[in-house]
Design a protein around this nucleic acid. Structure first.
Length: 612
RNA sequence: GGAGCGGUAGUUCAGUCGGUUAGAACGCCAGCCUGUCACGUUGGAGGUCGCGGGUUCGAGCCCCGUCCGCUCCGCCA
C-alpha cells in the first residue's frame, strides 16, 4: 500500500527488517492489555494486527493517556519498531516477532461499547443485520467480502481475455409476462405506466448480439419479487454472458474455464476440467433432481425388472399401468430413529406421495446373529424377487431401503427429496470439501402447467429447441421436445444455466404461440425482438451464473447473506435502514399512485361474528 | 399461503417435575498489577424471561393468541 497522510505502513506489514525504523500506523484497538505499567494494544486494520506497546519509561504522558483506550477506538500511533523480548514472540501473528514502541499517539475517534463482541460468533441475525457495518468488521465477514471481490475480478479478467465486452443494460425496463413477479417502478413522465426492474438482461443481451457485439458480459444486478431463502435474495447478481456464432460445447468450455479461474482466485485451488455431463433424463432418473448432489450415492434405482411379475399386487399393477417402482438403498441407515422416519414420511407427503408411508426394508442382525429383513412387505415377495432385489440394490447389513410406486414424476420428486434428507440426517457431506461440478444438458423445452392449463417454457421462451426435435414441436408433441439448454451444478446447487437461443423471427413467433401468446400480444410485448431477428440476427447463445451462490460456495458459507454486504432478511426488509418504508402522500401523488392496502384491524376480525 | 425451530442480562447460553432472591461465561464499570497477546486479579452494576391473555395458591416453564428472527414447502421463465 502507498504511504499516506495517516500511516506509513499497514498493520500486517512490519517485519524484522523494519527494526529500528520509525513507523506510523492507524487502525482500530483490537484489544488492550493494561498491566498497570506497560500497556499492550493490538492495533488492527484490514490487513492484520500489530502489537503496539506503551511504556511509562518511554514517555510517561503518552503511557498515562493510553490507559483510557478501549476496544474499537480508532487511533493513530507513531513509534519505533523493536524486536520483541526473547520468549514473548507471538507465532500466531504475522507481525509477531516485532512490536512498535509508541512515542506519540492520537485518538482519531473514540468508540462506544459495541452492541456485540466482534471476536465471537453471534447467532442473533437481527442484531447482525441491524448493525451490519459492525458485523462486516468481523474477520470472517471481512474475508468473505474481499474474497467475493477477488472472484468477481477473476471473472472480469477471464472474460476480458476471451474477448468479451462488458455492457450495462437498463435497470428500468419492461415487465416480463412469464417468470417471476416483477418489482415495478411508476413512470412519472408517463402517467399510469410502469417500469419493471429486470429479472435478467435476457432480451437486451440478445439484441446486443443482433447489434454485432459478438461477445458480451455483465456483472448484472437482477430483481425478482418472490419469497426468500438462504440462497435467494430479491436482488442478486448474475455474471451474464452471451456470444454469437457459438454452440453448446463452446459455452460449456468457456464457462468451465471461467469457474476454474474464479475458484483459483477465491480458494487457490485448481478444479479438474472438464466437468462431467449428464442429461436431464439421467439426472432425474438417478437423483430425482435437475441439480443433483453427486457427493454421495444412495441413488434412485428402477425396480421394474424385479417386480414386473411380482405377487405383490401394488407394485405389479403400478408397473402394468405405466407407472414406476423405484427404490433408494440408504446405506448404513437401519438405525433410523422413529422421529427421523416420521420426518421422512412428512417430506415424502409434501413432495406428493399419495400413500401415508414409504414402504421400507430394514436389514439388521438379531441377537442370534441372523440377518433379519424387517419390512411390512417382505412377506409378499417371492424368493427370486428377494434375491434380485438384494443383488440390484446391493443390500447389506444395516441398510434400509425405501420404495415408491407411482408415476415417474412422483417417484423423482419424492425419492429425490428423501435422498437429500437422508444425507442430511446421516450428515453425509458434513465437513466435506468435495466440489462436484457437473453439467445437466438436454432439458425439456416445455412443461405443461396444470395450474395455468397451458404449456410453459422450462428455461425461457427464447430457448432453442434441439434441431432433431423440431418435428416434434411441429407435431404438437410439446412434452417430448428437448432444448439446447444446459445448467451447471455444484454440490446440489444450480450455479447457472443457459441455452442456445432462437435467432429466427418465425421460429420465435411459433414458440410464443405454443406458449399461448397471441399474435397481437406478440406485437405489443415482443415486437422489438421479432423485428430484430429479421435484420440479420446471428446464431447465438449464452448463460448466466449466480455470483452470490458461487461466492457462498467458495467461502464455504450456507447462506448468500454471508457474502452480500447489505442483504435483506426473510421478509425482504433491511433492518439497518428499516427499508422499505412509507412515503409521503405528496410523493405518491406525483406518481399518480395510491395504495389500496388496509391494515387488518383486530376488532373487525373478532367482532364480525357478533355484529352479524 | 403453509410447516418446523427459536426469542431469558449488552452478547452467547443454562434454567430439572410449575415452587425460596432467575444463573454461568464473555462483555461492561471501578480498583490493583511493568511483558501480555482470549493478560491476570479483587469488587460491582446489569433482567418487562418478545408482547397480550388464560389456567393455578404459585408460571421463564403449561394453554391460547400475537409479534419478531431463522429453515423448509408453495413460489422462484
Amino acid at each position: 500500500m502507498i504511504p499516506n497522510a495517516y500511516r506509513s505502513l499497514h498493520c500486517n506489514a512490519i517485519r524484522a527488517e523494519h527494526i529500528g525504523q520509525n513507523v506510523t500506523l492507524a487502525g482500530w484497538v483490537n484489544s488492550a492489555r493494561d498491566h498497570g505499567g506497560v500497556i499492550f494494544v493490538d492495533l488492527r486494520d484490514r490487513e492484520g494486527l500489530t502489537q503496539v506497546v506503551f511504556r511509562p519509561e518511554e514517555n510517561a504522558d503518552v503511557a498515562a493517556k493510553s490507559h483510557d483506550l478501549r476496544e474499537e477506538d480508532v487511533i493513530q500511533v507513531t513509534g519505533r519498531v523493536e524486536q520483541r523480548l526473547t520468549g514473548t514472540e507471538n507465532t500466531k501473528l504475522d507481525t509477531g516477532a516485532v512490536e512498535v514502541v509508541v512515542t506519540t499517539f492520537s485518538i482519531l475517534n473514540k468508540a462506544d461499547v459495541l452492541p456485540f463482541q466482534l471476536d465471537r460468533e453471534l447467532s442473533n441475525e437481527d442484531m447482525r443485520m441491524k448493525y451490519r457495518y459492525l458485523d462486516l468488521r468481523r474477520e470472517r465477514m471481512n474475508k468473505n467480502i474481499r474474497q467475493r471481490h477477488k472472484i468477481t475480478n477473476a471473472a472480469r479478467n477471464y472474460l476480458d481475455a476471451e474477448g468479451f465486452i462488458e455492457v450495462e443494460t437498463p435497470i428500468l425496463s419492461n415487465p416480463t409476462p412469464e417468470g417471476a413477479r416483477d418489482f415495478l417502478v411508476p413512470a412519472r413522465l408517463s402517467p399510469s405506466k410502469f417500469f419493471a426492474l429486470p429479472q435478467a438482461p435476457q432480451q437486451y443481451k440478445q439484441l446486443l448480439m443482433v447489434a454485432g457485439l459478438e461477445r458480451y458480459f455483465q456483472i448484472a444486478r437482477c430483481f425478482r419479487d418472490e419469497d426468500l431463502r438462504a440462497d435467494r435474495q430479491p436482488e442478486f447478481t448474475q455474471i451474464d454472458i452471451e456470444a454469437s456464432f457459438i454452440q453448446q460445447n463452446d459455452i460449456i468450455s468457456l464457462v468451465e474455464g471461467l469457474l476454474a479461474s474464479m475458484f483459483k482466485a477465491g480458494q487457490g485451488i485448481d478444479i479438474p476440467l472438464p466437468f462431467p455431463r449428464m442429461t436431464y433424463q439421467e439426472a432425474m432418473d438417478r437423483f430425482g433432481s435437475d441439480k443433483p448432489d453427486t457427493r454421495f450415492g444412495n441413488e434412485i434405482v428402477d425396480m421394474a425388472d424385479v417386480f414386473a411379475k411380482s405377487e405383490f399386487k401394488i407394485f405389479r399393477t403400478t408397473l402394468e399401468n405405466g407407472g414406476v417402482v423405484r427404490a433408494i438403498n440408504a446405506k448404513g441407515f437401519a438405525g433410523i430413529t422413529t422421529g427421523q422416519m416420521i420426518r421422512l414420511n412428512e417430506i415424502a407427503i409434501q413432495a406428493g406421495m399419495k400413500v401415508k408411508q414409504l414402504a421400507f426394508i430394514k436389514v439388521e442382525r438379531n441377537e442370534a446373529g441372523v440377518l433379519e429383513y424387517k419390512s411390512p412387505l417382505w412377506k409378499f415377495f417371492g424368493e427370486e424377487e428377494k434375491a434380485a432385489l438384494i443383488a440390484k440394490l446391493g443390500v447389506e447389513e444395516n441398510d434400509i431401503v425405501f420404495f415408491y410406486a407411482g408415476t415417474w414424476d412422483e417417484a423423482c420428486n419424492i425419492l429425490g427429496r428423501v435422498r437429500l434428507e437422508i444425507a442430511e440426517m446421516q450428515e453425509t457431506t458434513k465437513g466435506s470439501t468435495a466440489l462436484n461440478f457437473l453439467w445437466v444438458v438436454d432439458f425439456p423445452l416445455l412443461a405443461y402447467s396444470p395450474e395455468d392449463q397451458s404449456w410453459v417454457a422450462v428455461h425461457h421462451p427464447f430457448t432453442r429447441p434441439k434441431a432433431e426435435d423440431v418435428p416434434l414441436l411441429d407435431a404438437g408433441e410439446y412434452g417430448k421436445v428437448r432444448a439446447e439448454a444446459y445448467d451447471v451444478v455444484l454440490n446440489g446447487y444450480e450455479l447457472g444455466g443457459g441455452s442456445i437461443r432462437i435467432h429466427e423471427s418465425d421460429l420465435q413467433s411459433k414458440m410464443f404461440s405454443v406458449l399461448g401468446v397471441t399474435p397481437e400480444e406478440q406485437q405489443i410485448k415482443f415486437r422489438h425482438i421479432l423485428e430484430a431477428f429479421k435484420f440479420g440476427a446471428p446464431p447465438h447463445g449464452g448463460l448466466a451464473l449466480g455470483l452470490d451462490r458461487i461466492a457462498m460456495l467458495v467461502a464455504g458459507e450456507e447462506s448468500i447473506r454471508e457474502v452480500i454486504a447489505f442483504p435483506k432478511n426473510n421478509k425482504a426488509c433491511d433492518l439497518m435502514t428499516d427499508s422499505p418504508t412509507t412515503v409521503d402522500f405528496k410523493q405518491l401523488r406525483e406518481l399518480y399512485v395510491q395504495s389500496t392496502w388496509k391494515e387488518k384491524k383486530k376488532e373487525e376480525v373478532t367482532a364480525s361474528g357478533t355484529q352479524a
